[in-house]
Design a protein around this nucleic acid. Structure first.
Lengths: 195, 195
DNA sequence: GTCTATATCGTGATAGAC
DNA sequence: GTCTATCACGATATAGAC
């Protein structure tokens, strides 16, 4: 009953990650079995363990990679300019980065509780680092007197929740283009923090 | 090895629901076993099936009850007054209702994908009905020229995502009182939709 | 590197005694 | 209404052939 015997390490590894990402996002980490991942990849379950020590590490690795990419891409976008410009850049970046990554976002926000304590601490620290980018912008704007933000930490969480919520309803096939969505959310953000 | 033999139907039913709610919120529906629920309730696994036909129905029943309570409590709060008053009432209601129900909210938003198709349709309809309350307020405000809301549907989703996000970080033991949180979020909301 | 086979355990749900 | 016992199955992970 062999199916695809032979050596395919260079494509199997990424395929496992892609399949796991999709299945975790669709059904949830706990609801997805290693057998199911293997079936969709086209290998036997045992073969998965050549690429990941266990299921937990597969989840962690996906989340870690996402957060690393997020932070690296963010840093280059929001460090120069006045507060208003940086905020606009942040909103624009956040929306565009997240729009093409609905699965990653979903997992990053929903599967935190399925991480081991150590893995959770790692991911949580990265999430904090990302929020700190926005918080720093808000504080700058407060100093420049262009924003009125009584509690930068709370406002940061509020804005990120609002922006990230896009992924729960946005579909590329929908009525609004990414640019239109970005414009709508930018206007709400801008007004919400305005002095 | 009997533990708590005897008849306790009047307290066991609610206890099962309370325990299941807590465990589902903490670990996720798929990650929680019927045995685990039974253990925390203090009965054997088989006894659970005197109260629920199956695990799926237990989840659905919890979500349905939450949505019913949400809609009933909401309707009485946001139907009279001008748009600004109704929006303030909605924000205030949403925050206060959700603050004491972190577990219910978490489940209502995170476990949708673990519902059977029929159950999902039911809950989704109730969620829409709730969003429609806010959308109606925004449209009223647009008519009254007190709001500037180019896309009421999108703004509705954005505001609800922002407001519901409170449950991911708010703790009663934290620095801010519920009233202070409500005030911060009301100001952001008010400004975000202002004409 | 992938396969087959398997060890070990936990799962949802049911049957029948009390 | 709760218990004990059990069914039928699927889970993660490993061992060893190829």
């Amino acid at each position: 009953m062999a199916r695809t015997q032979g050596s395919h390490s260079q494509i199997t590894g990424p395929r496992i990650r892609a399949v796991a990402l999709k299945l975790f996002a669709e059904h949830g980490y706990a609801a997805v079995s290693m057998r199911q991942i293997a079936r969709d990849v086209g290998v036997q379950a045992g073969a998965l363990y050549n690429y990941t020590p266990d299921k937990q590490d597969l989840l962690f690795s996906l989340m870690k990679q996402h957060m690393d990419e997020l932070l690296e891409a963010c840093a280059s976008r929001v460090t120069s300019g006045d507060a208003m410009t940086r905020l606009h850049n942040f909103v624009d970046f956040h929306i565009n980065f997240h729009m093409g990554r609905a699965d990653e976002i979903f997992i990053a926000y929903m599967e935190l509780r399925n991480l081991s304590p150590e893995n959770f601490a790692t991911i949580e620290a990265l999430r904090r680092a990302y929020e700190d980018h926005l918080e720093a912008i808000l504080i700058s704007g407060q100093t420049e007197l262009v924003f009125d933000v009584p509690d930068p930490k709370v406002t940061t969480r509020a804005l990120i929740a609002m922006l990230t919520g896009i992924t729960t309803w946005y579909r590329p096939s929908g009525a609004l283009s990414p640019a239109e969505v970005a414009d709508l959310y930018w206007n709400m953000t801008r007004k919400a923090v305005a002095a």
